[in-house]
Design a binder for these strands. Structure first.
Lengths: 218, 218
DNA sequence: CGAAGGCTTGACCGTCGTCAAATCGCGTGG
DNA sequence: CCACGCGATTTGACGACGGTCAAGCCTTCG
C-alpha cells in the first residue's frame, strides 16, 4: 500500500498563487459533482475522500494528511468525482488550475511534478486494487497499518505508535470490511502481540510481523 | 464502472512523434519495473495490465482496446508500475514522453488533454474500488459486462452481443473473484435469461436488468 | 490427431457479513 | 463539576457467499 497522494509534493507548488482556507471537523472541502477549479494541498489536519455509486453505496477512497494533495480527479473535466471531508479541524491551500497552468509554462519542473503526482495517484489506486481484490481481512488491516506507519514516519512521527483519527467504520469502508470485522481484527492483533490498541491509540506496532502477514499468500 | 483508460483520447496526441510497433498475442509490451520513456496508444487488438505485490500475487487492473492509452503510471518516475500483455495480436503507437512534452509546450490543448487522461484514469480506478470493496459477485460481473458493453458501443460495435477475448481467470482476477465463481455466475446469468453465453461469446445482454442488479444494495 | 489449456459443475468448508446486546468514552448542558 | 445521552466500539451467535479441491468435458492449436 502506498504512502499518500502527494507526500512532500507541495514543495514544488510554491510558485503557485494560492488561497488559504480553514475546514472544520465534519465539514466538506468539496463534494462529488461540484464544479472545481482548484487543487488543494493539506497544510494541517486530516481528510477522507469518498465516492458514491448509483445504489448510494459510499466508499472511502483515501485519507489525506499534511503534505498530501486533494482534488486531482477534477482535472478530468472540472467536476469532482469524489468528496473530501475533514476528520478534524484542518487547513488547506487552494491552488487554482489556472494559476498552476500559468506557473507551469515556464517551470518544466512543476509541469513534470504534476504529471508525477497524478501518475503516483494512479499507482496508489492500483495498489489498493490488490488489497481489495486479493487479500483477506487480516492482510487488509496489516496493509492499512503499515501504510499509516510509513506515512507518519515520513513526517517525522513515530512509525510504531500513533493515533488513528478515523472511525472503525471509515477504516472498514476503506479496506472493504465491515466495522465489526475491523474491530475483531484489532482485538486479534492485540491478542497476538502485534500491537497494543486502546480505542484510537495504537502502540508498539510489530512492523516485521505485519510485513510477514502481507507476504503470506492469502 | 468506467469505460477505458483514454477512449478517443488519442486524437489529441496526433501532433506527437511516434513509432509503430506490433505486439503478438501473449507478448508483453512492457513489464513492471521496466524503465519506460513512452506512452502507448492501442491502435488495434487488446491488452491486459496487471500488477504484482510482494507475495507474488498478480492482479489484472484493466483491459485496453483500440483508442486506449497504456503506460500512464510510468510518468511517476519513469518506471513501469504495471505490466501490459497482449491478449491478441495487436498494434500500438509508442509516444516518447519527450516528444509529448515538446509538443505540449505550444499546445495547451494537448497539455490539458494529458492532465484529463491521467485524472480520468484515477477516477476509473476509484470506480473499481467501489466494485471490489462493496459489491457481491453478481454485481461485480454485471458491472464488468456493462463496462464492456459501453466500450464496444462507443466504438461502433454492438453493446449487447460481443466476444470476450480474455479468459475466465483474467476476468476473475480483474473483479476479485476466482475463475470458478465467474463461470458459475455466467451460468446463473444465462439461466436467468440475462444473457446467452457460449464460451467467450456473449449475446443479447439484458442491459436494463444488469443495471437493476447494480442498483440493488449489495 | 493428440495434448494442453480453458471451462463447467459438484461437494465441502472457512471467512466475513448480519443482527443483536452490552460497554465505553466523549461532548453537552444543567 | 457532575450527570446524561448519543455515538463509537467490542463481542457473540449464526448463516451465506464465495474459495478450495476435484473430476470431467470442450476447444483450440500445434
Amino acid at each position: 500500500m502506498p504512502s499518500g497522494i502527494g507526500d512532500e509534493a507541495i514543495a514544488h507548488f510554491e510558485p503557485v498563487v494560492y488561497r488559504r482556507r480553514r475546514v472544520s471537523r465534519g465539514e466538506r472541502l468539496f463534494s462529488a459533482n461540484d464544479r472545481s477549479g482548484s487543487l488543494y494541498a493539506v497544510r494541517s489536519g486530516l481528510f477522507k475522500t469518498s465516492v458514491c455509486d448509483v445504489a448510494g453505496r459510499d466508499q472511502v477512497t483515501g485519507f489525506q494528511m499534511g503534505g498530501d494533495l486533494l482534488g486531482l480527479d477534477a482535472l478530468h473535466d472540472g467536476i469532482c468525482a469524489s468528496s473530501a471531508t475533514a476528520l478534524e479541524d484542518s487547513h488547506v491551500c487552494a491552488m487554482p488550475f489556472n494559476s498552476i497552468e500559468a506557473a507551469s509554462i515556464h517551470l518544466p519542473v512543476l509541469r513534470r511534478r504534476l504529471y508525477a503526482v497524478l501518475a503516483g495517484e494512479i499507482t496508489r489506486s492500483q495498489q489498493m486494487l490488490i488489497v481489495l481484490g486479493g487479500m483477506n481481512g487480516e492482510q487488509r488491516l496489516a496493509a492499512f497499518l503499515l501504510d499509516m506507519s510509513r506515512r507518519f514516519l515520513r513526517r517525522g512521527y513515530s512509525g510504531s505508535s500513533f493515533t488513528l483519527r478515523m472511525t472503525r467504520a471509515e477504516i472498514g469502508s476503506y479496506i472493504g470490511l465491515t466495522l465489526e470485522t475491523v474491530s475483531r481484527l484489532f482485538s486479534a492483533f492485540q491478542r497476538s502481540g502485534l500491537v497494543e490498541v486502546r480505542q484510537k491509540q495504537v502502540c508498539n506496532l510489530d512492523l516485521k510481523r505485519l510485513d510477514a502477514i502481507l507476504a503470506a499468500d492469502g
